[in-house]
Amino acid sequence: MRFDLLFGAIAFCAVAGVPFFIPWATVMLTIALGVGLAVLGVVVLLRAGQISFGHGLYYAAGAYTVAFLVQARLGLDTLLLLPAGALVATVIAVAFGFFAVRYRDIFFAMINLAVSMVAFSLLEKLYSITGGGDGLNVARPTLAGLKLGRVSFEFWMFYTTLAIVVVVALVVGRYLASPLGKGLEAIKSNETRLEYLGVSSARILHIAYGVSACLAGLGGGVIAIVTGHVAPEFAYWVRSGEFVFIAILGGAGNVVGAFAGSIVYEIVRNYAAAFAADYWQTILGVSLIAIIMFAPQGLTQMRFGKKRGGA
């Protein structure tokens, strides 16, 4: 355990040092962390044994909320835009959750996929509001009240995202260790028993669904600000599939897995695209097959857990 903490601290320092030692990788890493937030949302649901192939919807909700607010020229700061994106995604999820949490397994996955595709279509078709297939540009907002140039903004946005990631990881880690989080594991292993304990498994899953969407919305907001652009593809099923892919790659067993998976995914994607433009998806696919075969618990479990009993 102590060694794990040491390893985690070293990994954190390595990530935190990137803007100083590999400055050109700063944006790539910020994007990875932003995507990692959305992946963590998927991981929360995986705890209950439920896969969502539609979390792109909440990712897009966060991103578009940020874009709309920036375009409205309200002069909102990044530190207000991000919670606003997360909030809108959460509200949508809580409303849709009343319906979605009635379903399990493939039906849960598909109902999420279906709704995200409806959202994708709306984002594409409602051109006057959403910018259609072109999406919307997101002008660089202030950060903590400061109007920064591009390089400074990218530098500080990285650390802002890193700080958010650390806080979110701690909070979600505590949530997953709480009765509510353990309730998710209970849904996965025996929902019948949970009901006979007098517990509404739907309510536990509904809360998790809201938490999960909040994380995806937060991630979407980060990406909108960092990349300066949002597009309907944010809600497309391929994006949702990517989140699931990364969750499996990193390992759903712990919170760190979402971010480790996301960083590895982003690096492989960037380098594979640069050096094997026609084959980069093949490289990713083969990596995932290798992970499933040789480290079914994901990348972090290769390092953190030699042989752990449960999740």
């Binding site: 009765p179 989080g181 309730g183 209970a186 949970l194 304990l197 517990v199 009993g309």
Partner: peptide, 22 residues
């Protein structure tokens, strides 16, 4: 997948209604 103790603690939480996420 949970330990014996966790199984009982989940029942305890159910009885007491203690679902605090923190």
């Amino acid at each position: 997948d949970n330990t014996v103790f966790e199984n009982l603690l989940l029942a305890l939480s159910a009885r007491e209604g203690t679902w605090r996420p923190w």
